[in-house]
Amino acid sequence: MNRRRFLAGSGAAFAIATMPAFAAPAAETMIVHYDPGCGCCSAWVGHMREAGFAVETRATSQINRIKARLGVPPGLASCHTAEIAGYVVEGHVPAEAVTRLLRERPDATGISVPGMPIGSPGMEVPGMEDDAYAVVLFEGSRSESFARYRGVARTDP
């Protein structure tokens, strides 16, 4: 299996190589922080539950403070922030990308879909063409492409 290393020299090679793969997405509960005034967040939560994730939601008027506490760079922010297995999942990330994150266990803070791309999970708009967008792996101010999608369909190999 190809294991990704995000930060060179992290010493995580042994831990990643010996860590068991997740048998199912619901192995840990995902906690989703969201602004109660946002409607698309519940649609994304539905997408995650349909994919087999156990999800707990927490409405908050302090979403930006939570993003800052969890290390989400402002340029990668979206409308909701989730936590699972020590990772941050920011925005309308497809369940497939979260499953991959949990399987590969890269040395990173988390993944993000910046903004709110049309067609991403929770942002489906009938009659509008789906946007192409990237899922970004991040750690501090460093980031790199983790996967590319159009709607919920992955476009990279």
Results as ranks from 00 to 15, higher is better:
L102Y: 02
P20A: 04
L101Y: 13
C40R: 05
G119Y: 06
M116P: 04
R5D: 12
L102W: 01
E104A: 04
L102V: 02
S112R: 11
A82F: 05
R49S: 06
V32P: 09
M30R: 03
A97Y: 09
A12W: 08
R142M: 08
A108C: 15
F22E: 13
S112E: 06
M48F: 11
V125F: 03
V55I: 11
V125R: 12
L102N: 02
D35N: 10
P94W: 10
T81V: 06
F138Y: 12
A12S: 13
D35V: 00
T57Q: 13
I66W: 07
E90P: 04
V136M: 15
V55E: 11
I66H: 06
A24P: 05
A27T: 15
I84T: 04
V45Y: 11
R103P: 00
R100H: 13
E96A: 15
C41D: 05
R105I: 07
E124W: 08
R4D: 11
N64E: 11
P20M: 07
G127N: 00
T29F: 01
A24L: 10
I16F: 03
Q62W: 03
M1R: 10
D107M: 04
I16K: 13
A21M: 13
R65D: 15
D35A: 11
G122Y: 08
M1L: 12
V113G: 07
I63R: 02
R4P: 05
R105V: 09
Y133P: 13
R49F: 01
A51C: 10
M1E: 14
E139S: 10
A95C: 07
G86K: 15
A23G: 09
S78L: 00
H92I: 02
A59R: 08
V88N: 14
M19P: 02
